[in-house]
Simulated scan of single mutants.
Amino acid sequence: MAVVTSPRRNELAAFLRSRRARIRPEDVGMPPGPRRRTPGLRREEVALLAGVGVTWYTWLEQGRPINASVQVLDAVARTLRLDVAERGHLYRLAGVPFVQEPVCDAEAVGDEVRGIVDSVDPLAAVVYNARYDVLAYNAGYRLLFPQVHVASRADRNALLHLFAGPTCCSAFADGEDELPRLVAQLRASYGRHVGEPAWESFVERLARRSPRFARMWASGDVAAPQQRIKVIRHASVGSIRVTSTSLGIESMPEHRIVVYTPADDQSRELTARLRELDDPLVGCPRHARPLSVLAADQRAGAVRNG
């Protein structure tokens, strides 16, 4: 039986194909591979980079009448490097409400900013947007927060990993003090984006997965980022005290480079020991697993869900 599609869905299919065709594999860190019959990424490559199922993305690009969540559309938009106007077009074609306001998420982290992040290594450094999506990071950050490194691109968010997992496995030893502050900072940023699909979907997702986040969110507290000493609990070496310094990026509004500097001699020693490990542990002392095992589990889960 032939699939009946609407003009809107046909336009959506054509739009997605055209956006996919303009991105080369090497643009997103993938090998060019053998000669391709058509330019750009393949459907399965887009699905992999966006963290969605290949069948689902194929149906979306074929214009089939399937439901598309805001979260998934946002992941597809990031993968296809859609600008503000293109994102709005994607949401409208998919039948998802979209508030036409300036979207401040960066389309990509430029070489200059990546160079700064890499240059401060061995200090841990990362680029966050206002939702704490992890957009770029260096080797020091990868060792300090290995659970973020092995996550799929769609799940590479600092708050998601702090709240969605077991409380005992939280990266912060002082979570009862630190987590409410992070939620308050998130809410302050949210005030500039009320109604935007990416934001509404993200808050809903966190609240659904974490009753603890839902309680903190319901408090209505807001706060501005500030320099603080955080206690990172690492299963491989113990507790590391770091000073968190947030640096604004003039070319990327609402994005920042955060640098984590060891706060004392003991923390500097523990950080140096951490860099000597080939396969650091992830989780709390009770549930710790080697990073390689966690990465293998993540890949297996992605295959099952795909």
Score class of each variant (00 low, 15 high):
residue 244 S to D: 08
residue 249 I to N: 01
residue 58 T to M: 05
residue 204 E to S: 14
residue 2 A to G: 00
residue 296 A to G: 09
residue 205 R to E: 14
residue 196 E to P: 00
residue 210 S to M: 04
residue 21 A to W: 04
residue 17 R to V: 01
residue 64 R to A: 06
residue 73 L to C: 06
residue 297 D to C: 06
residue 296 A to F: 01
residue 15 F to A: 03
residue 191 G to N: 10
residue 86 E to R: 05
residue 240 I to E: 05
residue 219 S to R: 15
residue 283 G to V: 07
residue 126 V to A: 08
residue 222 V to Y: 01
residue 137 Y to F: 15
residue 288 A to K: 08
residue 95 G to W: 03
residue 18 S to C: 00
residue 24 R to A: 15
residue 228 R to M: 10
residue 167 T to M: 11
residue 144 L to H: 01
residue 92 R to G: 02
residue 280 P to H: 05
residue 23 I to L: 14
residue 100 Q to I: 07
residue 171 A to T: 13
residue 55 T to I: 13
residue 81 R to T: 01
residue 248 G to Y: 01
residue 144 L to V: 02
residue 88 G to C: 04
residue 133 D to H: 01
residue 7 P to K: 05
residue 199 W to C: 12
residue 115 G to M: 10
residue 103 V to K: 00
residue 93 L to T: 09
residue 262 P to Y: 02
residue 137 Y to C: 13
residue 288 A to L: 03
residue 245 T to I: 13
residue 131 R to N: 00
residue 237 V to W: 10
residue 300 A to L: 15
residue 275 R to S: 14
residue 268 R to F: 02
residue 168 C to P: 00
residue 170 S to K: 11
residue 44 E to W: 05
residue 91 Y to M: 08
residue 156 R to A: 01
residue 83 D to C: 06
residue 221 D to A: 15
residue 197 P to I: 03
residue 223 A to V: 04
residue 287 H to R: 10
residue 270 L to W: 07
residue 62 Q to K: 05
residue 39 P to Q: 06
residue 205 R to C: 07
residue 169 C to V: 01
residue 3 V to N: 02
residue 185 Q to G: 00
residue 86 E to Q: 15
residue 32 P to C: 02
residue 169 C to P: 02
residue 247 L to A: 10
residue 154 A to H: 01
residue 3 V to A: 08
residue 301 G to E: 15
residue 43 R to K: 09
residue 40 G to N: 06
